[in-house]
Structure formats: C-alpha cells, structure tokens
C-alpha cells in the first residue's frame, strides 16, 4: 500500500473500532482470489496486517459478493460466520459488523469489526456510522495503484465484456471483439 493511503485506511479502521465500541477491526482488500488485511486495530487484530484469507468465505466474503452491509450475532460455537479471520485473531467473535468498501467499480474491500464491548451485538447506528467510514475507505482503496481490486485480469475483462455484449450488443459488442482479438494476438 502506498504511503499516502496507508495512514488514511489505518485511521479509518481505528476510528470505526473506537466509535462503534468494537474490540477488533480490520479492512480487507481483494487481491485475486484472496482477501488481504491492509489495516487493523485492536489488541488481537493489530498484528494481522498482511494476513490473507480465501475470498468468498465467511462474513467478509459474503459482504464483498453481495455488496450489502450486515451485522450478525452468531453463536459462540458457530465457526461459519468468522471463517478465515477467526484463525488470524485466535477467537470466534460473538458479534460481527461487516460493511463493503465501495467504489464506482464495485466493492474493493470490506471493513469488519468484531465483538462489541458491553453488548451482544452492534446497533443500527453502528451500521450507519461504519458505512460512512467504509465509504471513505472505499474511495481511498480505489486510488491504490498497486491494488488490483476492481481491476480485472485481461481474460476476466474479456469475459466481462463478452457477457455485457450478450446483454447489450449495440453498446459492448465491438469493444468485446476488439479486446478478444488483442488477447488472441498475444
């Protein structure tokens, strides 16, 4: 992460944890088929920066796919909602708040906060506050030149354009054909 962006997302995750009353929190960014922790706050999560978990699993994976914020209070013995990050922080959270970090090119990462202090679960106010901070993080993360989040591989781009061409031939067919030809020519 660049020196310009790192302090911003670190400040945002620290503010989110503090303001919502969470114990630990982190921001995960999609890099191909894994999610990487790029900022973290809290006693158990602070050392998690750089950790990678499989994409598409657990609460973070669901939120990244669905683009919908969610707050849940899983049973203590329910490992599904915390798949991935539970192993990183060494415990299964009792409450989880997870928000997509959105940009114009879709969700580039997620802000996840766990274990609200003094309460069984995060409130709707916490959801809205975290949503605002995650929105700022999304803008910051989208500016990362090194982050591949939202920037598909050429073959992914060709596939995406091909599907768009199927849906709307007049608008996308030509550029899909051109890109496919470029890829074919190596």
């Amino acid at each position: 992460m660049t020196d310009e962006v790192a302090p911003v997302v670190q400040a945002l995750v620290e503010a989110a944890v503090h303001a919502t009353g969470g114990t630990d929190g982190w921001i995960l960014v999609r890099r191909d088929e894994v999610l990487e922790v790029v900022a973290a706050a809290g006693p158990a999560a602070a050392a998690a920066v750089g950790a990678r978990i499989p994409a598409g699993v657990g609460t973070a994976g669901f939120v990244l796919e669905s683009d919908q914020p969610i707050a849940i209070a899983p049973d203590a013995d329910d490992e599904r909602a915390s798949t991935g990050m539970a192993a990183v922080i060494g415990r299964r959270p009792a409450s989880v708040l997870c928000i997509p970090c959105d940009s114009d090119s879709g969700a580039v990462g997620v802000l996840e906060i766990v274990d609200k202090l003094g309460s069984e679960k995060f409130s709707f106010d916490d959801v809205e506050l975290a949503t605002m901070l995650a929105g700022i993080a999304g803008v910051a993360l989208a500016a990362l030149p090194s982050a591949r989040a939202g920037v598909p591989l050429p073959n992914e781009l060709a596939g995406e354009l091909r599907r768009l061409a199927d849906s709307d031939p007049g608008r996308y067919a030509t550029v899909a054909t051109l890109l496919a030809a470029l890829l074919a020519s190596g």
Partner: peptide, 14 residues
C-alpha cells in the same frame, strides 16, 4: 433462520 439448522440475530436492509 441460518445455515446449519440454526437461528441468528441479524441487522441489515437485506
């Protein structure tokens, strides 16, 4: 209702 035959408290427009 949640996966695994369980139930869970959840918040969201979802």
């Amino acid at each position: 209702a949640w996966r695994g035959g369980s139930r869970m408290s959840s918040t969201g427009n979802s």
